[in-house]
Design a protein around this nucleic acid. Sequence first.
DNA 1: TCAATCCGTATC
DNA 2: ATACGGATTGAC
Length: 661
Amino acid sequence: MAAESIEFPVARVSVDIPLPHLDRPFDYRVPAKFAETATAGCRVRIRFAGQLVDGFILDRVSQSTHQGKLLPLERVVSPEPILSPAIARLARAVADRYAGTMADVLRLAVPPRHARVEREAGQTPAEAWQSPAAAGSGLVVRLDVPAGWGRYLAGAAWLRALRERRPARAVWSALPGEDWPVRVAEAVAATAAGDRGSVVIVPDARDLDRLDAAVTAVLGSADHHVALSAALGPAERYRRFLAASRGSVRIVLGTRAAAFAPVRDLGLVAIWDDGDDLHAEPRAPYPHARAVLLARAELAGAAALVAGYARTAEGQQLVATGWAYDVVAPRATTRARAPRVVPVGDDAQLARDAAAASARLPTSAWAAAREALATGAPVLIQVPRRGYIPAVSCARCGEPARCQHCRGPLALSSATAPPACRWCARPAAAYTCPYCGARALRAAVIGARRTAEELARAFPGVPVRTSGRDGILATVPAAPALVITTPGAEPVAAGGYGAILLLDTWAMLTRADLRAAEEALRRWLAAAALAKPAREGGSVVVVCDGRLAAVQALLRFDPGWFAANELAQRRELGFPPAVRMATVTGPPTAVAGLLAEARLPECAELLGPVVVGQGSERMLVRVPRSAGKDLAVALRSAAGVRSARKAPDPVRIQIDPIDLV
DNA sequence: TCAATCCGTATC
DNA sequence: ATACGGATTGAC
């Protein structure tokens, strides 16, 4: 009964099971009928502990190290080698870094199969990718004269390094008014000129559209890249993923999940606006796109770009440790391109009387808007909260007004509607304050819609436009208009805004969040970057205490200075990225059990617990960065022991979560 | 003496 | 998780 002998009869399989203690490859016998189709990287079905489960073949080998008998592969789902060795290695590294399982990471990294798309013919063969110089016109010229990058110290040198296939790493602070999609596209083109591929990650669909257009323009063709986002349907998403996997494109632009896109001959990874919390994956093991890309740059020997108008403490850390170049413009260039920034008002006073229109919009803000409109330029008004009046409080004692039924916050949706609960939508027509008995309410927070209403009244005849989560404007023309926006939804104005008003800054700055100031500055810089330069009359009015470091950084348009401060502070306080931190969240006994089990590094410091809701608490574990790996390993194996023992309560482990208090 | 049940262990 | 084996328990 000599079985037909085949080459590499053993498949090493990554099995799709959620249990941490089973997070390792398992060997299976490759039956002769699958000798050709069971390729490394393909999806298979196997029998595992009696049940049929999915898996990926990591590798085909001639012998197993497993002592016992091997089960055969049950089925080859598809011979498509969808999980490349490079991405498998990356997924393993990300799982290790985040104390998670490879199966969890692979669910984020590889989109679900779409059989019809896979069968489609007409995938551009790899030959279509030649030197992009051959495909486009003007590309070579642009690369020889990197005027845009030439404005930055070390910018031109960095671009040259990409072309010469050197793994140069840069943390780039974009100038105000910078056309960042074009700069990024030039970096991608330079990498392509060195015959290598790129992965670029942006926070959202709007940024992706801009980048997509810029890459098409710079390469002179849309044939060499794909844009990957979760918004695509399953078929299109798989089609584009497959285009990268098969090597018919070597440039992938996308949102956070695309950080895992299987680009061949990777030469550059880039992330735009790495401080945006959309880059943090909300599903286990909660990897951050920046961390995924940087791990990838290390593994692939690729160049890296961490970019934004703002700079994160994490970005600064890369500069401080010498891992990356600091790519910034000379001060004179920045001064020449930045708008005039005027801080008005003091924070405490504004917080006391946030509802008063006069305090919200001081005289200088009105004046700046009026002047800008007179020159024919649009004015941008950034308001942190959307809606009409998203929070109300008792007019007498100031206690926030809450729903009688569910304790949710009350809000007004228009000037005439009665207050209603934002959670359960029940109206609260006859509100009585449970603390002082008063029956009157006042606005605690003013939303974008109400702001638009007020401004429309103040500037009759000037068009008022709004841009927010439900209806984002991409651009506005160079004409007088008031553009009310929530942070992150700012339209780009042709020719730049004449004035930008940053309102209700206290709402962002008073958040009990480690990153509140960094986040406020990030949002202000993103808006301020859209203004005309000061010499063309561009101004920014920030209604805030001018002594704050974040306002000082905005005044000088110096995100590097702020990030260096921020990093120094995190070092002092012992917070990431100066240290590695883990949170363990769950029922108290489960959290305690897991930490008792874990063989934490000697140097680990335990902080907490803090109660974080019904029957749930959270512990912090802090170690020096050098022990980060050990911490992740310890937590993961403790979770493994628990899962092996069938411990009932789920415990969530997060490494360097972004919402540390 | 045999079946039902519990616990622990391996899962290729 | 789930499946299996070996030990333990309980009833005839």
